[in-house]
Design a protein around this nucleic acid. Structure first.
Length: 737
DNA sequence: AGTGCATATCTTTTT
DNA sequence: GATATGCACT
């Protein structure tokens, strides 16, 4: 089908590839369209075919279509699949995330509202730094509100389109007055620093459209057809922007599933999808309820839980697929055993069944849970990938190097400047910085500009002013080199000139070595970026890519490894075998949601999202005891497990798998039989699971299993490139690495 | 100014 | 258990 020119795409053929409701949703091109698409019902298929259909029928040119998603991964997938259906029709097509498309809009048009096109995008860490500075500078009484709390309230306000002035006017409580003051100053400073936070990327387009009708009309004219993925996760600002964008042509197609709305805490309004029919009175509605992913048992089990939610469109997924195995509930003693049980099962299935490691996903509610699982996988020698957690671009050393690049691109970015002016240490401390800052403020110039005026500042010791000048000169030098050298060359030169790698190497600790690794990885990420985008890729492009990318985007679904990630990250993905861990009250559902009905329903939706990721097998585990905050706590089985319809479930009680003979419910006996994990040193076998080996033919690999049953010791080894091999030890010329 | 140690304070989830 | 902050010391 691919490879042919677009003219050969027959609209009738497109329809043949789809089931009835999918086909209707694709061909209902005119007017507002609501597609309620259950998990695994072919949502992406509808979106991509719809775009292809619009192009094939000549209803729109690529430049007239706008398709928005939430994650880069979803955008990339959509782009790829449309390319396959309609090759050579991609130029000018706007497919991307809300944040990246709006950033593009703002880089083009932001000058009207006072932004330079090189504005910085601040992440949570930068936001925190800024708020702290504000509180210090304004000498505010924080009323014990942590900066993160103030920030959260500010973000809430912004998501709901509440301006600083509105916020102040509505302030009832001294805490709110405090937040109002911070909020106001926060917005002022962001603008002075030519910087936006994530919320601004959605809000500033609204300001742009409201203040500049000509700009608004240009884009209203431009986009004849608008498609929105995951509509249930849109917030107020996104809702308003979509309304503006669709106002002229009114061809807006939104796809979503209210049961999969899991971002309320970030301002998502489930009401947007529940009320779409009211907002767009003439809309047509289509339901996609046939599931192509999971077994009947999985669907029924997931359904039995989600129906406990009150806020939802009634619907029920069905499948023509097999009934499948029952959903397995694993009851285990503690978190260590949970990890061990799961690893055992994976290892078993890997050996007995035709499965590879990438068929498995282990999901959890909080990132902190990954540690134990990781360790268990490591001791068993099973390759794994962790998605999320401490993100690469948020690591200190990486942010430090990025800080240089950000200041080069956007000299007004005082947050990044402060970060690097004394990194590596060049003797410009807090006190000197405060003086420089005061000077800049007084003269109403940028901090970076004040650096070169340092000679005229009487109260700065000469030694220090010399250092400041040297730093300033260095930055100016690189700024002038930016047009002549590639981003990679610039970044490498900066790392070299400032001795960043050298410094980390000299420190020579495990920690500093891995930091040096990360710096090198950053440099190669810059090179990779240039390779994939093309030689015209600028530093600005790279920085935007960094700001808007997440770890899930880099997740490689082809790698032969078990995937570990949070339930949130798993949305939109699928795996043959899924483990959902930590099903305990207070953990999943998380404690903060227990008293809040709306939050609890969101947790339940999260459970539903997790469960519907699985194609063949779903395991749900809970542990009687779990280490949290560093201490061992007794847990209570999650209500979600109780809500499961027992008809589709089998319970496996493994609470004491190794001590089953002395089954009692007495807590003391648990203590007695508690395995002593600390002391479990493996016998010093040369070959044991996890050991890396080299084979003359197959290359490098990892030992998975040892079978010493017969006279010859047999090994099961997973080679990095040659796959899985069974080897007889005396004959295989294996070398331990 | 910069370092190191003790203490506190937590932990959702992410574009 | 991990990170951030504060304080004392060099």
């Amino acid at each position: 089908m691919s490879g042919k020119a677009v003219h050969s795409i027959d609209p009738e053929w497109i329809k043949k590839e789809l089931n009835e409701p999918q086909s209707q949703a694709v061909t209902a091109t005119e007017g507002p369209v609501l597609v309620l698409a259950g998990a695994g019902s072919g949502k992406t298929r509808v979106l991509t075919y719809r775009i292809a259909y619009l192009l094939a029928c000549g209803l729109a040119s690529p430049a007239e279509i706008l398709a928005m998603t939430f994650t880069n991964k979803a955008a990339a997938e959509m782009r790829e699949r449309v390319t396959r259906l309609a090759p050579n029709m991609m130029t000018g097509l706007w497919i991307g995330t809300f944040h990246s498309l709006f950033a593009r809009l703002l880089r083009r048009e932001g000058e009207c509202i006072g932004y330079d096109r090189n504005f910085s995008i601040y992440d949570e860490y930068d936001q925190n730094t800024l708020v702290k500075q504000i509180i210090e500078d304004l000498k505010l009484d924080t009323m014990d509100v942590p900066t993160s709390g103030a920030l959260h309230r500010i973000s809430d306000a912004k998501n709901n389109l509440v301006s600083p002035q509105d916020y102040l006017n509505n302030a009832q409580h001294p805490i709110e007055e405090f937040v109002a003051k911070v909020y106001k100053e926060y917005q002022i400073r962001l603008r002075n620093m030519n910087a936006m936070d994530f919320d601004d990327l959605l809000l500033n387009p609204i300001e742009l459209f409201e203040r500049f009708p000509l700009v608004r009309e240009f884009y209203q004219d431009k986009f004849h057809y608008i498609l929105v993925d995951e509509y249930q996760d849109t917030n107020r600002a996104q809702y308003v922007m979509l309304k503006y964008l669709a106002q002229k042509h009114k061809n807006i197609c939104v796809v979503g599933d209210d049961d999969q709305s899991i971002y309320r805490w970030r301002g998502a309004e489930i009401r947007n999808i529940l009320d779409f029919e009211k907002d767009y009175a003439t809309c047509s509605k289509f339901r996609l309820e046939q599931n192509y992913r999971s077994t009947q048992n999985i669907l029924s089990a997931a359904h039995s839980v989600i129906t406990n939610n009150r806020q939802r469109h009634a619907k029920k997924l069905w499948t023509e697929g097999p009934v499948g195995e029952p959903v397995m509930v694993l009851e285990v003693y503690d978190d260590l055993e949970e990890a061990r049980t799961i690893v055992d099962k994976i290892s078993y299935e890997f050996r007995r069944v035709e499965r590879n490691f990438h068929d498995f996903a282990i999901l959890y509610r909080t990132n902190a849970q990954s540690r134990v699982l990781e360790e268990a996988l490591r001791t068993e020698g099973i390759p794994y990938i962790i998605v999320g957690g401490v993100k690469f671009y948020e690591r200190k050393e990486v942010k430090d190097v990025l800080g240089y690049l950000k200041v080069l691109v956007n000299p007004a970015d005082a947050i990044s400047l402060r970060r690097i002016i004394n990194f590596p240490a060049r003797g410009i401390g807090e006190a000197s910085l405060a003086k420089l800052d005061g000077y800049a403020r007084h003269k109403k110039i940028m901090l970076s500009e004040a650096l070169s005026h340092v000679g005229s500042m009487a109260d700065l010791p000469k030694r220090i002013s010399e250092r400041v000048l040297a730093f300033s000169a260095m930055m100016n030098k690189y700024r002038s080199l930016m047009s002549k050298f590639s981003p990679f060359e610039i970044a490498s030169a900066i790392v070299e000139e400032n001795g960043i790698l050298r410094m980390l190497k000299e420190e020579n600790t495990i920690e500093s070595i891995s930091r040096a690794e990360n710096v090198r990885e950053l440099l190669s990420a810059i090179a990779d970026f240039a390779n994939s985008v093309g030689p015209e890729a600028t530093l600005e492009d790279f920085l935007e890519h960094v700001s808007l990318s997440t770890d899930i985007d880099k997740w490689d679904d082809k790698a032969n490894a078990v995937t570990l990630m949070t339930l949130h990250s798993a949305k939109g993905l699928e795996f043959p075998v899924v483990y959902i861990t930590g099903l305990e009250e207070g953990l999943f559902p998380l404690s903060r949601s227990l008293s809040d009905m709306m939050a609890l329903e969101e947790e339940r939706r999260l459970f539903y999202v997790g469960a519907t990721r699985s194609k063949d097998m779903l395991y749900l585990s809970w542990a009687r005891y779990r280490r949290r905050y560093g201490e061992r706590l007794e847990s209570v089985k999650s209500r979600f497990l109780k809500e499961l319809d027992p008809e589709f479930v089998r319970i496996d009680n493994l609470a004491r798998p190794y001590y089953g003979k002395h089954a009692t419910t007495d807590e003391q006996s648990y203590q007695d039989t508690m395995p002593d994990y600390e002391d479990e040193s493996q016998e010093r076998l040369e070959f044991r699971p996890g050991v890396r080996v080299r084979h003359p033919m197959f290359g490098k690999g990892t030992v998975i299993q040892i079978d010493a049953a017969g006279s010859n010791v047999k090994l099961l080894v997973l080679f990095d490139t040659a796959g899985r091999k069974r080897l007889v030890l005396p004959y295989a010329k294996l070398e331990i690495l």
